[in-house]
Design a binder for these strands. Structure first.
Lengths: 211, 211
DNA sequence: CGTACTTTTGAATCGCATCAAATCTGGTGG
DNA sequence: CCACCAGATTTGATGCGATTCAAAAGTACG
């Protein structure tokens, strides 16, 4: 991780009050870097400009469970007022990440109601995304989960695979073998196209359940 | 639903600014009542004092998917600034529910930073709960999901079944048959006790993964 | 007393996890 | 430039566990 930019990403700049911009630090992170671990005390919030980060916890049997895979936006929003992290944050692809001190965020909120409102809006969007993920995980066939992901999270039915099919499989809560077979099967049936690191849903069944 | 109380539930009173208390309306709801449907415009926030409410959506095949089952607290927090509900809200047990006008909540936030902060804290807790639910749904055996629920959401390992095992099964994302068999099996093994509408985890394996 | 729903048990089937192994890939050092 | 290695990708075979379909027994309610 090396100091790179003083420039604050567009979306972040719109969210934060101007006074906080100077306190942001943006760096490049390598794949494999760890942002935080279970039990750490949150000091800064991490905003992903580009790349990929996963939140994960160790299951009882030592296997890792992916709570979330993010490619843009704040990671672990809920840690704003937490004493400790309840999951690990790991960088899974070369990323540009901006750090914002939590104490300064809190101070800004106390005096800037509009900022609080924007922050609440961000949390609301995140809540909806998570509810959709719960809905997705309650589907029991791999194909249903994948199509649900493409329909709800994709852009025009396209969705970036990101750092490999394995992490996508973890996000869907299935083994990578099952996902490989599912993708292959759907390609054969003409339901799916795979190109340039993207999965694209072909409009066979326009069953898109709009958000 | 009948007008009953002017009294605002304790927890709600602590969250809301005093000026909003008079605008709250608490009523009794019967089982089966619908708070809102997909597409409705959110006008009031619903706070459950007691009872049970589920958020659900219709799957592609017409089956209902339970996004959330709540027995206390606000329902659909994320709808504060939404133009439309993205799921149905249905009362599944006799309940006492308080309604708070959204426009008044928003007005209060604009002028009361402390209220915004408390609201953000509520959203943060909800986010963590949802992440735990995602973690739970990514377990593939019924028993693992049930134990995870009792460990993370239970009080001393006890968890109220609520309005029937069926709704609990829906919350866990499994069929009710599978849950019946799982409960029976765990009782036989001495892992679980079922009494007075509660499921209690017996301390065979203290594998509680603390929040 | 009858209706509607929940709870419970049974049997058959299907899809995914699991284990195993081969192939492909990018990156490193000789 | 090539040999080599670690990790990702892909394919195969097997078994388990949940779904599914079916039906009986229990329970609440008017």
């Amino acid at each position: 991780m090396s100091q790179l930019l003083t420039e604050v990403p567009q979306e972040l700049a719109e969210l934060l009050p101007a006074g906080l911009h100077a306190l942001c630090q943006t760096s490049a992170y390598k794949k494999g870097a760890r942002l935080f671990a279970v039990g750490d005390k949150p000091v800064v919030m991490f905003f992903i400009g580009s790349g990929e980060v996963v939140l994960e916890r160790q299951g009882i049997h030592g296997e890792s469970i992916v709570l979330q895979r993010s490619r843009h936006g704040f990671v672990g929003e809920a840690s704003l007022r937490s004493a400790r992290y309840h999951c690990d944050g790991r960088v899974t692809a070369p990323s540009e990440i901006t750090r914002v001190p939590i104490r300064d965020i809190q101070a800004a909120m106390a005096s800037d109601p509009a900022f609080s409102t924007r922050w609440i809006g961000m949390l609301n969007r995140e809540l909806k995304r998570l509810r959709l993920q719960c809905e997705r995980l309650s589907l029991n066939r791999v194909q249903d989960r994948l199509m649900h992901l493409l329909e709800t999270e994709g852009q025009q039915g396209s969705y970036p695979i990101g750092s490999g099919v394995k992490s996508l499989a973890a996000e869907l809560g299935v083994t990578h073998e099952a996902l490989y077979r599912c993708v292959l099967d759907m390609e054969k049936k003409g339901l799916l196209l795979r190109e340039r690191g993207q999965l694209k849903l072909l409009t066979g069944a326009p069953g898109a359940c709009g958000q």
